[in-house]
Amino acid sequence: MTGLPLNVDWQQILLHLFNFTILFGALYVLLYKPVKDFMDGREAHYAEMDSAAEKALADAESSKETYESKLKSFDAEIKAERSKAGEEIDEEKKRRLEAAKTEADKIISDAKAEAEAEKGKIIASAQKDITKLISEAMEKLAIGESDKDVFDKFLDAAEGEDK
């Protein structure tokens, strides 16, 4: 087209435009987009890492808080356990004491019964001996020994029995 200043040519302008459009498309597809995608991907990757680290940190913080609260409640728990154990011990102690007392009572009553039985046995034996001695003494009196001899024999017999 003639007549335009500086020899401006619309056809050449359109050819420049065509050239630039092709360049725009090619650079966008081949260079700009892949590089930008890579950069965005890397940014997302680091953001993900960052969020994961933040999450891990938050988890650690919450775990720390949980353990701290557990530690705090642990003292109370120990105290409760201790008092419970004390109560159990007291109960056991009481139970054992009662058992011991019962056993002691039983032993005493058994011993008493045994002693009574022994005493009865001894008394019976002593009565038997006395009866025997008296019968012997009566026999001797009937045979004719003096009172003094009989009495001496009775004492000797009694002494011998003591020994």
């Binding site: 040519d9 050449q12 050819l15 050239n19 090619a26 650079l27």
Partner: peptide, 21 residues
């Protein structure tokens, strides 16, 4: 017949596209 600038434009675009490829 075009201005040398247009040829230069095609050459530059060609170089850039080759580089990008």
């Amino acid at each position: 017949d075009v201005n040398p600038g247009l040829i230069a434009a095609f050459v530059v675009s060609g170089i850039l596209i080759l580089f990008a490829l």
